[in-house]
Every structure is written in structure tokens, then in C-alpha cells.
Amino acid sequence: MEKENSKKFGMVIDLDKCTGCGSCMVACMAENNIPFREDETDKLLSVSWMHVYRLTNVKPFPDTEECYLPRPCQHCEGHHGHSPCVSVCPATATDYDMDTGIVSQIYTRCFGCRYCMAACPYHVRQFNWWDPLWPDGMEKSLNPNVSVRMRGVVEKCSFCIHRYQLAKDQAYMEGRREIEEDEYQTACTQACPAGAITFGDLNNPKHAVYQMVKPDKKNGGKPKNPKAFRLLERLGTNAKVYYLSSREWVRRAGDNYLKTEGQAKHA
């Protein structure tokens, strides 16, 4: 299915560096015209493409440890693009692109059945329960490169696909067909003050993301780097967001294990 020179954009998030500061979330909101309401404390009603989770080792004081885990759309490949959400959409409003590996979401096609939300184990898909409204004048800060979603549709992180589109335009203008690694970076990657997020083409051995996790193509994209893991790898989602952590309990929190299973199952 994959073509010769197709790309597979993916992300590596170093949880040792991530400080949970929330810059990725806010950068994403500002870049992608995420609406906001007076009360956004019910996170299950709030739209935020990037969400930072707090993980804990569940030990009492003073052995408590915490880790912060930013979670964009995992852009699952599943097997041959069969991500959990794509195949369930009845109206073909979401799709897997073999050239980029990005799971698209077309808001104007979506009619809000929410099957994809039910299918996604990462909760990356969020519904527009309300009309997105901006206080008078604030709509001036909207980014014209990202369409504003209407009430009643599902939305999710797009890996800032508009930046890819714009980068390609620039390349075409300069007579190039291909773009460089640094020409297409997501807003969260760019904003992260700790430099915890790396973005690039997982098919390209020259790209940093490839070098950081060394995805094993023969083994469903599993990382060869022992510090790397993906969320819920055992479900077969074949996600394109990798996490790095030097802490065993953090890596183990990335997936479900039976009590009988050993400590180093993820490797």
C-alpha cells in the first residue's frame, strides 16, 4: 500500500524533558483556532487537540512520583491504515493518507455520529458540543490556514497539516518537489520550551524522530530504542507518536499488563 517515497510523519515526545507546562496545548489552541468557553474545567466537554496527562506511580508520600504525558492524535496506522477510527466513520469524514501517514478529519463532511470517538482509545477525538463563538474582536486572532469548526462535529489534532500544505507551496514556488525536515514542524513542537517534542518523517533515517526511536518496520513499527514506547501498543493501533522515558513505571503505564506479566514486557 505504501508507496516508494511515501512519508510517515510521526512524533517523539521525551517524557524526561516534558515539564507538563502546557505550552504545547496553548500553542495548539492558538494555531488551530480552538474555541474556548467560560468554564473549561470539565475536560470531557472541552476541545483540546493536545492534552497533557498527569501520570503517577501511585506510591504514598514521600515516594510519590509524577510524570506528564502530552497526548496529541496518535495517528494510528493500525494495519495498512486500518486505524481504530478511520474504518468506523460511516461518511468517510476521516481517512488515512498513505503519503503522509496522517489521519485526516474533514469537519464539513462529519455529521457528528461520534462513532470515531467511541472507537479511539486515546480520547483524542473531541466533539463540538457548543457553537464556537469568540468574544467580539477576538475572532481577529483566528488563523486563516485552519478552518473553524462548527457545532456538532468531531475534531482532532491534524499534525498541523496546514503547515505541510504551506511548506509544499513554498517549495513549489522555489522549484522543489520535496521539503526539508525543518520546513514542516507542528505548532506544539515549535513551542515546547523544554524541547521535549520532536517531529519528522519516521520513514526517513536522516530525520531526528527516526534516529531517536529507530522504528522496526518489520515488527509493526515497534521502537528499537529500549527507552521508547507507544501508548497501548498491544491493541495493535500502530501509533506514530512515540514516547521516551528512562523510568520503568512510566513506560509500563503506557500499556495494560496482566499481573502475571513481567516487568519488561514492552521491549
Binding site: 500500500m1 508507496k3 511515501s6 495498512h80 491504515g81 486500518h82 478511520v86 474504518s87 468517510t92 476521516t94 481517512d95 488515512y96 493518507d97 498513505m98 503519503d99 503522509t100 496522517i102 485526516s104 478529519q105 474533514i106 463532511r109 491534524s158 497539516i161 505541510y164 500544505q165
Partner: peptide, 11 residues
């Protein structure tokens, strides 16, 4: 590039 339609990818 579309997996669903084998036609143009949405994005």
C-alpha cells in the same frame, strides 16, 4: 493516497 477510497487523500 486515501486508504478508504484509493482516491485523493482528504488533507
Amino acid at each position: 493516497n486515501s486508504v478508504q477510497t484509493h482516491k485523493g487523500g482528504c488533507f
